[in-house]
């Protein structure tokens, strides 16, 4: 019995995040939920909880929908897969349960063709961005989550990069210095510009 993405509800987008502990995937999953709220959409974001060890593989989920979201199971059939650490592709089946038109976004210095070659990744519409390098250059830390959001905006059209920048200006400003806020916006826009598709 295959119930399809969330039982086939229309207007529902399901995202699965693959990362290593410490890369900020849970924060990114939650940020996408908050961006959906800004668009007047329903949202849900949660990690698949396990031991929270830095460097260990983790999974997180985001759902965005025009209608109230009832399902609370983990995402089985994602339309979007975001991989914050390319080395996970050889350790985890990142496209498990996804259909052939899944959008896959990978943080890597390789172009999409290079990822397919190195990891034997098949199917889907593959996008790559060197989010770790962008993070190092804009934030001086290898936390690729904000750049991945910029690349996600470009690859999926799920939200406008301007709206993300606005969100960062408002939300991050509550916790971080102006310098950090501007660094995040630079990371966002650079990755939006640099993401590569096939």
């Amino acid at each position: 019995m295959d119930s399809g993405p969330s039982g086939g509800a229309a207007g529902l987008t399901e995202i699965r995040w693959h990362a290593r502990g410490g890369q900020g995937a849970v924060t990114a999953a939650k940020m996408v939920a908050e961006l959906a709220l800004g668009q007047g959409k329903y949202f849900q974001a949660f990690p698949e909880y396990g031991p929270e060890r830095s460097g260990a593989p983790i999974v997180a989920f985001t759902r965005v929908s025009d209608d109230p979201i009832n399902i609370y199971s983990g995402v089985e059939h994602p339309q979007i897969v975001v991989v914050l650490d390319a080395s996970l592709i050889s350790a985890v089946d990142v496209t498990r349960g996804a259909s052939n038109d899944v959008v896959i976004l990978v943080n890597t210095e390789l172009p999409p063709g290079g990822v397919r070659e190195r990891y034997g990744l098949k199917g889907g519409r593959l996008f790559t961005v060197d989010a770790s390098r962008i993070a190092m250059e804009t934030l001086r830390r290898a936390i690729p989550n904000t750049p991945m959001i910029g690349a996600l905006a470009k690859a999926t059209g799920l939200f406008q990069v301007e709206d993300v920048a606005e969100f960062i200006r408002h939300d991050f400003a509550k916790k971080f210095s102006a310098k950090v806020v501007e660094g995040n916006i630079a990371a966002l826009t650079r990755s939006y510009d640099e993401v590569r598709g096939e």
């Binding site: 329903y42 949202f43 849900q44 974001a45 949660f46 990690p47 609370y72």
Partner: peptide
């Protein structure tokens, strides 16, 4: 309410 599923998840 359900631990993690609700307690730690972001929802409306």
């Amino acid at each position: 309410y359900d631990g993690y599923v609700i307690s730690g998840a972001i929802g409306p």
